[in-house]
Design a binder for these strands. Structure first.
Lengths: 250, 250
DNA sequence: TGCTTATGAATGATTATGATTGATTTTGGA
DNA sequence: TCCAAAATCAATCATAATCATTCATAAGCA
């Protein structure tokens, strides 16, 4: 069976059953598990399905996905040290852009006593900033379900009305050659623009993002200062050839 | 059964029965008690249900936010009848503007199965729309603390990018001569603009708003259809000389 | 031939699961 | 009210399933 055929087959099956298990596909196609996994990866990158542990579901119809109110956070301690360091870079009177994301969210509690104006495209961040008494503007635009990030043309247009002293971005991967990347091209566009509107740009990414490459490129490594936590000395040296690296400590 | 499937299964079951016992889920899913417990924990962390001793219940939506709660607790039944009537005026395929406010908030649960695109300037409404799976755009702009409404130049500018089939506004007062009014001129400007961008405008206001006049004028009575609940026959006749009046029933 | 791409198998890591334990909460009777 | 039994709970552990990654081979193509 040709690769394309198999892809079609998987999508049809998924359409019928709404949910499929990897083992079922393996049995039906007589391809190896590895191959099916690869298939699912490319189909997921095309947004034609969403992978879940053990199989895949139709995109967007995954009702039991984490919602934006999800309290559980991974690598919380690491993220906190990064957030604390990042927040210390904010001066009184600054206009600050905070990207949607959990790490930037963590920053907010360290910003509470600063006299700043914040702009964000993150729904959860707006609330948190508001609760901490920080003046906040939201970009507006199309809300990307579940992640709570506003994206799209409207967001881009709104952003252009602002200039920032500092800008803090989250990413899904950073890599010496490929720079900063994230899965969604629309989000990447927003991040790229925000960075270009700021005097200083910082990328917040814990060590789990090191050497990772996602689908959509945001910008080169040198376009922002990287704030991270414990990474190997070797990697750090490689990175520092391209950009400034700051490391948070607990 | 995939983990994901089981989560959906539990949520569906809960939706139907309002209350579920862990043992029932165990019997139905043929997973172990431990697994189901774990499921419930993650679903609770996502605010998709609340655990109680022995099982789980639907999350108390209105119980969580004290500030919002106070407002929405008042005249809740009246507002609900208004919201229900208003929601029935929305057609599949419509683009809908929902003003920030508690009455418009109530509308959302009656919109859940409609295939619409929504635009709003209300922070709480964005979340609720999102949770009900409705595509939602937010205007963006400056967040007005406490009320959760976005206002200002940015909001105005964003709004101009849209056209609406229907538009639903909340007000603080309606009066035969003075029209619709609200305390904040900035909010009034947003409401006025939204209305002018819509083919059909509706104002949602329970009887406690009757004959009230606030500081900032939004527009004339005749510029929108008024949806309200029990008002005196006398008042209704006066109002109907100026505009269409619809009255919600419980 | 040389080059790229697709495949399958093997690996070690990660995640999900079920059973067990002892603690906590509820229930129902004295 | 109080107490004890029953039910439910969180925490832990070992096991099983699933995962990403790597490597070697096979297939397609100039």
């Amino acid at each position: 069976m040709l690769t394309n055929e198999r892809h079609e087959f998987i999508l049809n099956l998924l359409e019928q059953k709404q949910t499929i298990k990897i083992q079922d596909i393996v049995d039906l196609t007589e391809a190896s598990e590895s191959t099916i996994r690869r298939d699912l990866t490319v189909l997921e990158n095309r947004n034609q399905l969403e992978r879940v542990f053990g199989g895949a579901v139709l995109p967007g119809r995954n009702l039991s996905e984490p919602t934006i109110k999800d309290k559980s956070a991974r690598n919380l301690e690491e993220k906190d040290s990064i957030a604390k360091l990042a927040a210390s870079l904010v001066q009184d009177g600054d206009s600050v852009y905070l990207d949607a994301g959990t790490t930037t969210f963590q920053m907010i509690r360290y910003l509470r006593d600063k006299n700043i104006v914040a702009v964000t495209n993150g729904l959860t961040l707006v609330e948190e900033l508001n609760e901490h008494g920080i003046t906040v503007y939201l970009t507006g635009g199309l809300l990307k379900p579940r992640t709570g990030a506003f994206i799209g043309a409207q967001t881009i247009q709104s952003l252009k009305n602002y200039r920032f002293d500092v800008c803090f971005l989250g990413v899904n991967g950073f890599h010496p050659e490929m720079g900063y990347t994230t899965p969604d091209p629309e989000e990447a566009a927003v991040k790229r623009l925000a960075s270009s509107l700021a005097s200083e740009s910082y990328v917040l990414a814990d060590h789990s993002k090191a050497d990772k490459i996602s689908f959509a490129k945001i910008m080169e490594l040198g376009d922002a200062v990287l704030i991270t936590d414990s990474i190997s000395t070797e990697l750090r040296e490689t990175l520092e050839k391209k950009t400034t690296v700051k490391v948070g400590t607990r």
